[in-house]
């Protein structure tokens, strides 16, 4: 595995701070709501004040494709302290899948034993991991053109190296990037975003600390194919009223659009880098790069 020397890497991305418009919209909405009704806030008990960033601000995101040399495609993703590594193997043939008309997608999420100080993870897959694998599977399967690869299997392995909140979002995003890196045909990449709704605030991209402090509050996760405007996954826990749900879903949709632009930029950058490294004389690589470029524009 190549080691990532962060200092030499220039594509560290910060989501631009164009939240002013959003904040204004939100203020307007709040006023409207107050005038309309003093409805009961189900999440009234929980309050939390974010100190180091705005409520609607993302943490810094870093992603890099082509990290694992043996895999067909891979992606390493950091959202500050949340670190996720995803590798994709396939589409490859297996004796079991000979009869399938479409490719089979296999998705596995694993927490490293040292990834969290709250929970201890065994080498065996536990219920939480299985459930999260299923969520990731459901989020990305809609984006892939599996009918293009009959009798094969696509394996997606996600390893959570460090858990500092928003693991699912990172995992879904990384998985989609890795699949794009592997050149699996897809309609669109899947970007994801999550939020925690507490009393009079919605916190985007929560850290592990925020997740534990606001336990029981409403949480929403949205994953989306932005160019199709299709929501591929939507999960909510905790009690929220209807308006809150719609508002935070919209907020998450905005967030995933932003993540999507970063994903796209990173993918283009990585292809350009690869092209540069291989040199212009290498035709085969040139062709594959173009093909991948086309695919993404599609």
């Amino acid at each position: 595995m190549k080691i990532d020397y962060r200092s030499g890497n220039s594509i560290k991305t910060q989501i631009p701070l164009d939240y002013k418009e959003y904040l204004k919209r939100k203020e307007d909405k709040q006023q409207q709501q107050q005038q309309q009704q003093q409805s009961t806030q189900p999440t009234g008990a929980i309050t939390y004040k974010r100190k180091d960033r705005l409520d609607e601000q993302f943490r810094q995101i870093f992603m890099k494709t082509g990290i694992v040399t043996q895999a067909s495609g891979s992606c390493y993703l950091e959202i500050e302290k949340t670190k996720v590594l995803c590798s994709v193997y396939g589409p490859r043939a297996t004796p079991k899948t000979e009869l399938f008309e479409t490719a089979k997608l296999n998705c596995e999420l694993k927490y490293a034993t040292f990834s969290s100080n709250k929970e201890k993870f065994d080498y065996l897959e536990n219920t939480k991991e299985k459930d999260q694998s299923l969520i990731i599977y459901q989020s990305i399967i809609g984006s892939l053109r599996l009918d293009k690869y009959p009798k094969t299997v696509v394996d997606v392995y996600i390893l959570v190296l460090n858990d500092d909140g928003d693991v699912l979002v990172s995992a879904i995003t990384a998985a989609s990037m890795a699949l794009a890196d592997a050149g699996v045909e897809m309609y669109d990449m899947v970007a994801s975003c999550s939020a925690v709704c507490i009393k009079d605030a919605t916190l985007i991209n929560p850290t592990a600390q925020e997740e534990t402090l606001t336990e029981g509050a409403g949480k929403i996760l949205v994953s989306k194919m932005p160019s199709h405007n299709n929501i591929t996954q939507l999960i909510q826990t905790g009690e929220l009223n209807y308006n809150n749900v719609l508002e935070s879903v919209n907020l998450c949709i905005d967030g995933s659009d932003k993540i999507y632009s970063i994903m796209k930029q990173n993918l283009i950058d990585s292809l350009l880098r690869q092209q540069k490294k291989d040199g212009d004389g290498n035709e085969i690589n040139g062709i594959t790069t173009n093909a991948a470029d086309d695919q993404m524009e599609e």
């Binding site: 459901q138 009690e239 929220l240």
Partner: peptide, 12 residues
């Protein structure tokens, strides 16, 4: 109030 949402199935 809405207490949980979960999406299933493969298409968006």
């Amino acid at each position: 109030n809405i207490c949980s949402i979960q999406k299933g199935g493969i298409s968006g």
